[in-house]
């Protein structure tokens, strides 16, 4: 980090005790706690430690996807393809691993060992990320349209490979090992631990590395970053590859957990990943937001939806609740920042 940036940061630190980002993150964390306490009062048996653990462990996949999506949003780009990639990588991993002597097309695969099948599936996922990067960075097509297209493309490939349903037979016995491995003698599974590690690494990268700080610069002012010699294009390409790699990993772990490659898995996950980022205070315009905020955003969403289920609302409520939650979050954050800056 340059001296100037450090000086700027000190200046900012003198003006307000917290940076705007930390302020919003604290706000979201506070909202998560208030909502949890509120839900505890309304819903019987909600106030339990195990329930807190469940809020995180049940949502590991969306939180992990949120990391890539948050980084891209901070750089000023959308990634709506992650849900499609989850389906694609899961289906491909299963297809590659299925024995090649099946009795019907859906139980016949490539007969690769599980680890190789998973690597192959990761490669497929990264190829979708590369496609995103190609269209957004090289052809300069708006990222929202590109990633909607690649989401359908990825899910479409998954549907063709599974003929519109799923592949779950004729798998090697070790295929399910990764997704079902429990850790530290508890019931917590490997994917949850990987998600936690990913969050920690992401926070470190975001706060303490040049790469992380450049992401903010590119999102806040792409012209300034280009003029100061940053290769914006390359940076965004890397972010898309990273996001697709995470999504690919999530898809493979889910496929391993359920021992199946299901072409509709991950439907609406891209939407949820975006929702939790927005709840966590990431600004769509770029240059603002944090992975920790996104994490608390996920807790807010999980608390709201699980409380709604506890109150025996029909599952049809989820869309309305998400809409209201995002709306309130955006308005509250805009209002809070405006107040903070005017005072």
């Amino acid at each position: 980090m340059t001296d100037q940036a450090i000086a700027g940061r000190r200046l900012q630190a003198r003006d307000n005790k917290l940076s705007d980002e930390m302020f919003i993150t604290a706000l979201v964390a506070g909202a998560a706690i208030v909502l949890f306490l509120l839900a505890s009062m309304l819903v019987p048996n909600f106030f339990q430690f195990q329930n807190v653990v469940n809020l995180v462990t049940n949502n590991w996949s969306v939180i992990a996807l949120g990391v890539g999506v948050t980084f891209l949003l901070v750089s000023g780009n959308f990634d709506l393809s992650v849900g499609g990639i989850v389906a694609l990588s899961g289906v491909m991993a299963v297809w590659f691993a299925q024995a090649s002597d099946g009795t019907n097309p859906l139980s016949t695969g490539w007969g690769l060992p599980a680890w190789l099948a998973m690597m192959g599936a990761l490669l497929c996922a990264v190829m979708i990320g590369a496609l995103n990067a190609l269209f957004v960075v090289v052809l300069r097509v708006p990222s929202i349209i590109v990633t909607l297209g690649t989401m359908m493309l990825a899910r479409g490939i998954a549907q063709v490979v599974t003929q519109g349903s799923q592949r779950n037979t004729n798998l090697p016995s070790d295929f399910g090992a990764l997704g079902n491995m429990t850790m530290f003698g508890t019931s917590i599974k490997l994917p949850v631990v990987l998600m936690a590690a990913l969050i920690l690494i992401a926070v470190f990268v975001e706060r303490k590395t040049v790469f992380g700080r450049l992401t903010y610069l590119i999102g806040a002012n792409p012209v300034a970053s280009r003029l100061s010699g940053v290769d914006n294009a390359r940076h965004v390409v890397n972010l898309y590859l990273f996001s697709s790699l995470v999504a690919g990993g999530v898809g493979i772990l889910l496929a391993s957990e359920f021992k199946s490659g299901f072409s509709n898995r991950g439907t609406l996950m891209e939407f949820d990943a975006l929702v939790i980022s927005l709840l966590g205070g990431v600004a769509i315009a770029g240059g603002f937001g944090s992975v920790i905020g996104m994490f608390f955003g996920a807790i807010v969403l999980a608390t709201v939806t699980s409380a709604a289920t506890g109150l025996v609302l029909s599952p049809d409520w989820q869309f309305t609740l998400k809409a209201i939650a995002v709306f309130i979050a955006i308005m509250a954050q805009t209002w809070a920042l405006a107040r903070r800056h005017s005072s």
């Binding site: 496609l131 269209f135 052809l139 097509v141 349209i145 590109v146 909607l148 297209g149 690649t150 989401m151 359908m152 493309l153 990825a154 899910r155 479409g156 490939i157 549907q159 063709v160 599974t162 003929q163 519109g164 072409s263």
Partner: peptide, 17 residues
């Protein structure tokens, strides 16, 4: 019918390009 998503996605990308 299960080819439809793939084709629409590809068409969207082609149209955009």
């Amino acid at each position: 019918a299960y080819f439809q998503t793939l084709v629409v996605g590809a068409a969207l990308l082609l149209a955009a390009a």
